[in-house]
Computed example of a mutant assay.
Amino acid sequence: MEIFNNKKDLKSCLLEHKTNKKTIGFVPTMGALHQGHLSLIEKAKKKNDIVVVSIFVNPTQFDNVEDLKKYPKTLESDIKLLESISCDILFSPSVEEIYSENIASEKFNFDGLEHQMEGKFRDGHFDGVGTIVKTLFEIVTPNTAYFGQKDFQQLQIIKKMVKKNHLDVKIKGCPIFREEDGLAMSSRNTRLTKEHREIAPFIYKTLKKVKKKFGTKSVVEINKWLEKKFKKQGLLELEYFTIADEKTLETAEKKEANKQYRAFIAVFAGEVRLIDNIQLKN
């Protein structure tokens, strides 16, 4: 595996591959890699000649400075993991390499997608996401980039950003990769206390019940039921739950026949914030 820390050398390497008609698959990450990341890389390997993974903890998408400080950084073990699955290229730049001296986000208009769910609780988050993903796409110029559906809102926003900026890259959303007990894999899971780790699968179990109820119950009934479940449970603090239109991400007040819906949830397990979602059948 080749490792690059600066844009110039990476671009030079990738230009050579492209001159030789090689296709480039790209998996952007913030490190602390787990099997969910590896599943994205494996998908990229099957469809592309060369796979590039980036590891960069992006400061402009953190609305909470403490969260940025505590975000796990495990570069040495990440490199070993990438080597174990024969990743071709790792791009691991410094903050200065990406932002020079101006650590700030561009301002984006995502046609309202940014104002839903996460956008209501994480000020400026999606401007930060748009900034770093656009920058990385301009550096790597991949044919296809791979993202997990755990961050479904982020996935939709990246698709919108690509379309509005006329970027020549295909965005592939991949299914959520879960632990055996159902907890969505996340780098943040390593920060859970033993007690919170034991109760965390409750999130996905509850979402699966929501999926069952969606066939017979109204949106209002499901919302009330879920809030009661979390109040009874006690250890996990519900930040938000919403059933939303997959396309617009707008909260549904009632079910409509020709729309596709998804349930989204954000929960605090102590200091650790966990998100998850599940597709619903109307």
Rank of each mutant, 00 (worst) to 15 (best):
K208N: 11
G36W: 09
N20S: 08
G128I: 00
A269R: 00
S54R: 05
G215R: 13
V129K: 06
F268M: 15
T135F: 01
W225L: 15
Q279C: 10
Q35E: 12
Q153S: 13
K164H: 11
L40M: 10
P72Q: 11
T193Q: 06
L113G: 01
N20M: 10
R188K: 13
F268E: 04
E180N: 15
A257Y: 09
L235V: 12
V220E: 14
Q154L: 13
K43R: 15
K209S: 14
S84P: 03
F202R: 11
G112Q: 02
Y146A: 09
P201K: 03
Q233E: 15
L15Q: 02
T60R: 04
F26M: 06
E83Q: 03
T190P: 02
A104P: 01
D88R: 02
M117I: 12
A200N: 01
V57G: 05
I89V: 11
F126R: 00
G270A: 07
T190N: 09
K254I: 11
N189W: 06
V129W: 03
N20F: 04
S105T: 07
V169P: 04
G119E: 01
Q233D: 13
L238T: 12
G173I: 14
M117C: 05
I103H: 00
L274R: 11
G128S: 02
H37L: 04
E101K: 13
E198N: 05
G234F: 12
N143V: 09
D123P: 06
D181C: 15
K224D: 15
K212L: 07
M30L: 05
D123Y: 10
K43Q: 15
V27L: 03
K107C: 08
K159A: 02
L249Y: 02
D67H: 04
E250W: 05
G130C: 03
E180H: 15
F214K: 05
E221M: 05
I41D: 07
V219L: 10
C13V: 11
E227Q: 15
M30F: 03
E106A: 07
N20G: 05
K232Q: 12
Q156L: 14
K172P: 04
K209I: 06
Q279T: 14
F121Q: 02
P175H: 14
D63N: 15
A145E: 09
K163I: 00
L207Q: 09
E179A: 14
H166P: 00
R197W: 09
F137S: 04
F4L: 01
N223W: 10
D245I: 08
L40Y: 12
S54W: 02
G270Q: 07
L249H: 07
E118I: 07
V162A: 13
R178K: 12
T251D: 14
T60W: 03
N109P: 06
L38N: 06
E195T: 08
R122T: 04
F137V: 08
L183V: 08
L235M: 13
E101R: 03
